[in-house]
Design a protein around this nucleic acid. Structure first.
Lengths: 120, 120
DNA sequence: CATGACAGTATCCTTTTCGACACTATAGGC
DNA sequence: GCCTATAGTGTCGAAAAGGATACTGTCATG
């Protein structure tokens, strides 16, 4: 849980930090983004996010659930099946995530994911 | 500097994390927010953000500067005068910050600053 | 002369976050 | 019997972020 706002230390800019506190986890943005495409199982999300470990993904998803942004449904089957989807509150985040995404695509292409096509 | 995206580990959700990496510092959101109101001196920002230390504010502002989001102008005067303002790139963040702010105001009133009016 | 404002630095420390790895339990395929 | 897949948990350690405090140097004020 992000310990961002323990006290009402800030005046007007605070909601910004509050929102950031909820979606600021390292993998939360991507997870939410993928869930915007619809319900996904745990390993489906995991496969969509190369580099994340189970433990990390579990943690992040649980925090999102605790914050009421996603819904976690466990089917008492074997092998286990757990489905994640956005909650109503989570869906209200779509414009925010999209604003972040559009801005990132336009202005933050820092991680330029090519190191070999400089001259290609 | 936020070491968020060292490798191109993610596909489509990545710009979201990239954007988050730039504005995700603890005080960056508020600082940017206040700078949207116009140019401010160091201590003016500081006074607008109760709870931040010089060191933290310096760090965050320098990172924002390094990321090209704000402009820092030093006037070779005595006593020193340093003015901070949004860069052109920083101004493109306004809709993002505002989306965050609106969402936070609407959905993230978590820090409900009361703990004694439960039965009152 | 002492103090405060300005805009920081330097040093140290604590908290938080992130990540690697091993482990659970069951079922199905070979 | 062994391996894989499912969705995790537990433990440990490293790294990063955040924070407390003290210090710089000059000028104006009292």
């Amino acid at each position: 849980m992000p310990p961002r706002f323990k006290e009402p230390y800030c005046s007007a800019g605070c909601p910004v930090e509050a929102a950031l506190g909820l979606i600021g986890g390292k993998w939360k943005g991507i997870a939410l983004y993928h869930l915007m495409g619809g319900t996904l199982r745990f390993n489906e999300i995991r496969r969509r996010i190369p580099g994340v470990t189970q433990r990390m993904l579990t943690t992040q998803l649980r925090e999102l659930e605790a914050d009421g942004l996603i819904v976690r449904v466990v089917y008492p089957e074997v092998p286990p099946r757990v489905e994640y989807s956005l909650s109503a509150k989570g869906r209200t985040l779509e414009p925010v995530i999209m604003a972040l995404k559009v801005w990132g695509e336009t202005h933050a292409r820092s991680p330029q994911p090519q190191a070999s096509e400089a001259a290609a």
